[in-house]
């Protein structure tokens, strides 16, 4: 398992990207999807996930809907219009960050 602290600042971008690809998702589903996509490398804890989701919701980037599933209720998150725009910005920022890190960590590779 990698250093979880390195991923901490990227949690909002990860959530936004997942919602861009999956239309609507619920909390547990997000944790499982990240685990699956990263082959268990990244595990999002509930204590980090929900505050991040609620902050995105409070900022107007996510919309919620509650639906009955079996014997219980489930809260789904989906991107708002400004959430979709912000996802594109965040992904650009992330690409830029990765390029910069590549130059720092592996200068030879980044010159090729």
């Amino acid at each position: 398992m990698g250093n979880q602290k390195l991923y901490k600042g990227s949690l909002q971008t990860i959530i936004l990207k997942l919602l861009e690809t999956n239309d609507k998702m619920y909390g547990y589903e997000i944790t499982q999807k990240v685990k699956e996509l990263t082959k268990g490398e990244l595990k999002i804890t509930e204590g980090a996930l929900y505050p991040a989701l609620h902050k995105l919701e409070a900022d107007g980037l996510l919309d919620v809907e509650v639906a009955k599933v079996g014997n219980r209720l489930r809260k789904y998150y989906k991107l708002t219009e400004s959430g979709t725009k912000e996802t594109a910005n965040k992904l650009d920022e992330m690409q830029e960050f990765l390029r910069t890190m590549q130059q720092l960590v592996n200068p030879k590779l980044s010159l090729e």
């Binding site: 619920y26 909390g27 547990y28 509930e46 609620h54 599933v69 014997n71 219980r72 209720l73 489930r74």
Partner: peptide
Amino acid sequence: LTKEQIQLVENYLYNKNFEFIDLKVEILDH
């Protein structure tokens, strides 16, 4: 889970004094 089993989970949250209605739905579901 059956309704009775869900009730046990709800009791667990109640005993933890976790009655925040804006969080309860998704924490219970999780």
